[in-house]
Amino acid sequence: MTLFLWVVYPYICLTIFVVGHIWRYRYDKFGWTTRSSQLYENRLLRLGSPLFHFGILAVFLGHVMGLGVPKSWTEAVGISEGLYHFFAVTVGAIAGICTLVGMSILIYRRRTTGPVFSATTSMDKVMYALLALVIVLGLANTVVANLVGSYDYREGVSIWFRGIFRFQTYPELMAAAPWTFQAHGLAAITLFALWPFTRLVHVFSAPLGYLTRPYIVYRSAKPSTAGNRPARRGW
């Protein structure tokens, strides 16, 4: 069971994540969009959407720090355990609460604003439920690991997580983690599997190229420069 949950299942889900995105991009470029509902309603969105999005961007960076950077590295540059955890708890809690509040506003808006609710697909609903679960569990972890208990995830979850990408598996580390961490991990992995089939794909079209491209785009019909796809049938 441990092997399945913390080795087999993550690899299955991550494979779906990668292959799913490639498939979706090839099959469904037209459906690849944010599916914004700002046109319908703006008052709640103006509050909720930036809260949620900036919050979750901060949460993402926090995960890069916590999961991606080994403990030995931060200690090598002189960040003590206490200092690290102080930052992790304060910044993490602020970002997490922003995300949670933003998400609550957005879900409330989605349910109560008529046009927005009718534009919600069933896939959206599944995704929102799972995303909310992941966020709530994640916020709980911040509290559990740092305030209530004293689980050092950088000695456990982080090593397991990095191991996945190096094909060195440490299922026993996850099995020993508190149950909130286990649940958060499982929910997140499941979300990754669902990711390519939801509107979450818009994360991967974050328009950073806008910062460097010229303002006006010209496109020629000449095959060499005619956009990024092969010419369609000539008839």
């Binding site: 914004s36 818009h202 491209r213 006006i216 010209y218």
Partner: peptide, 30 residues
């Protein structure tokens, strides 16, 4: 509009200057 598009989906055809939205590249940033 083209200058505002973060995705670079709106383009001006260099042959006849018609401004179009590439539906496959538009990501709905508004």
């Amino acid at each position: 509009c083209a200058a505002s598009c973060p995705s670079g989906a709106i383009y001006k055809r260099s042959e006849d200057g018609i401004v179009l939205v590439d539906q496959d590249r538009c990501r709905g940033w508004r």
